[in-house]
Design a protein around this nucleic acid. Structure first.
Lengths: 342, 342
DNA sequence: GTCAAAATTGTAAACGTTTACAATTATATA
DNA sequence: TATATAATTGTAAACGTTTACAATTTTGAC
């Protein structure tokens, strides 16, 4: 009474295994009477198709591999919600790998690619250190791929991508601080997700240049893309002789750490220092003070990425490898204000 | 030049496919010279074993299915980090399903179980509504299973489980508030994760009973296990004629929403109302004020759960289906203080 | 050099499904 | 009713791997 296979059902229903298979997969192609007989047999035996055999035979796993920096980040959580929704609807499962914690090495990802453990891959993190190998031309042909959130490295420009205009968004956020009257504006980013924050840094620099404001090298601080990293980076900023009056953080998680560090240093936000974040995670509106930040349509990004991937999987070469730019929005709350007179 | 199979390697190396298979899987069983010849051929052809075929043949997927309320919750994120670490080390991938967003229905989970899409299942959420079907005796025999975090429903007591003593932890947290001088203590929980919060409510009631304090029915409020849910529940609490002076929240996420709601209502924490959370997520120490909460060894729980599952998978019946209780700790920060005189 | 045992390799079957093709049966048309 | 066509079903091969068993080669002891 081990596992029941298609043969058992066929025997009980008095048909061939081919008919059972058809009754399961293309019910219209089998006579109603027979179909019902098969369904009865399935019910009686408790048969469920062996998905291992099915995957093997079909050459498809119905699994999508997702590579992202950290599932813990509320922003990516939201992106994943979108991915998951579409995936579930289309019958796909998700295999998740966090680069931040090196679950898989580059080689292992490459191996998964060629060994067909997944039908497609979603990259929400840049794979800069080893991008070329994993994303070699052959691999790309072998496995449909879409890049989300990240700007795409030039050498991978033929891979479809979906993200906001990070440069413009960062430029606007910085300009907002300038409009409030800030001149000494710092930029805080994380060492991981390099490509992504590179764009935001570029936007920051563009805005500073446009306003003819100097960018002191010490104002650009690198932490981890985490609370702890932000706390450390903030204290470095506070030790500076010429202390910035505003800090633009590469994501909300860092902004939260930054605000905490400022408060524990006895500074008030935004009275003494203004803080602006990026992402508009669910925590942004309940920080104290509520965080002014750049909203990304996280869920939508996830949905579009997954839909795009399905398109790649379906069509043999749907090679309009275009990049889709989604809208962003500066959400003004209370963590940024004009600098105090001095 | 499509995919390269074991046959291509065998042909190039001048050996049989069986030898190639052995060279790959049990290198010691093939002569050194031959092995090297095979390895050369593998390198030349770029061969990677087809994992679909391998899984099918071996009858194992190297995939573990995880069912949990929400990956977005920082507590579960941390638990998953532990699970992931062990899984990666042992060569397993994770398939994740969130009950909170109904990615999969009970039937679908049941189907995955019998159709062998995973080698084992980790339950971090109670499946109360349909527990019996998914967790039927046959299914349990078919698929190794471990329950984490949740207290186990009585009818499933033979499934191994790993969690803290939620009742005791909640009792201590409540007693702490009592020791500070609070008498009107509310308990806020989420509708999901029912079994889990049921234990915490029991602990709360035990402490109240032990201190001979009344428990007003209105003081036990149900929200969602989310920020929004907590905000709504808090405002209900504030509308009460006999307003509680302390609120014990079933998790940190709710505590964060609760504190936010209190502040926007013009109340100071902990001066006007004390708040205690549960989980000690990474945000607990940077809320304003820092959150007093019950720490669970989240990562450790994850590790132990996964290790336990591997044991179940390995040994045909390692039936010491014991429950493992991990230690908890009340972390005292600044969100709870003696009630203000009145 | 002979023989037994051990090490190495090859042959072929098996895993459970899908699917091309052939065979059969039902239906529609004349 | 006979025939052409469509609908339904069965037969058997195939997918790429692992593995029991047999066949061969090597090794070691005498």
């Amino acid at each position: 009474m081990g596992t029941v296979s298609i043969k058992d059902v066929a025997r009980l229903a008095g048909v061939s295994i081919a008919t059972v298979s058809r009754a399961v997969n293309e019910p219209d192609r089998v006579r109603r009477e027979t179909r019902e007989r098969v369904q009865d047999a399935i019910r009686q035996t408790g048969y469920a198709p062996n998905s291992l055999a099915r995957s093997f035979r079909r050459g498809r796993t119905q699994v999508i591999m997702v590579v992202l920096p950290s599932v813990g980040d509320p922003f990516f959580t939201e992106v994943m919600r979108g991915v998951r929704a579409v995936a579930a609807r289309e019958g796909y499962s998700l295999l998740i790998n966090e680069t931040q914690f090196n679950t898989l090495t580059a080689d292992e990802i490459g191996a998964m690619v060629v060994s067909r453990q997944a039908d497609g891959i979603i990259l929400l993190a840049s794979l800069s250190p080893f991008g070329t190998r994993v994303l070699s031309a052959e691999n790309r042909r072998a496995l449909p791929m879409v890049i989300g959130c990240e700007t795409i490295a030039p050498e991978l420009s033929e891979i479809p991508g979906i993200h906001i205009d990070n440069v413009a968004a960062a430029r606007e956020a910085t300009a907002y601080l300038q409009d409030l009257g800030h001149r000494r504006i710092a930029f805080m980013y994380g060492e991981h997700a390099t490509l992504l924050t590179a764009d935001r840094e570029a936007g920051y620099r563009q805005a500073m240049d446009a306003a003819a404001l100097p960018v002191h090298p010490d104002w650009i601080v690198e932490g981890q893309l985490s609370i702890e990293g932000a706390i450390a980076a903030t204290s470095r900023l506070l030790d500076l002789p010429e202390r910035p009056t505003a800090i633009f953080c590469a994501n909300d998680e860092m902004a939260m750490g930054c605000m905490h560090a400022l408060k524990t240093a006895g500074l008030a936000v935004p009275r003494d220092v203004s803080v602006v974040g990026f992402d508009d995670t669910r925590y942004a509106r309940i920080t104290d003070p509520p965080l002014t930040t750049v909203r990304q349509p996280a869920r939508l990004i996830g949905e579009r990425v997954m839909e795009r991937l399905l398109l790649e999987i379906g069509a043999t070469d749907a090679d309009d490898a275009g990049v889709e730019i989604l809208p962003h929005e500066l959400i003004i709350r209370a963590s940024a204000a004009p600098p105090s007179e001095r």
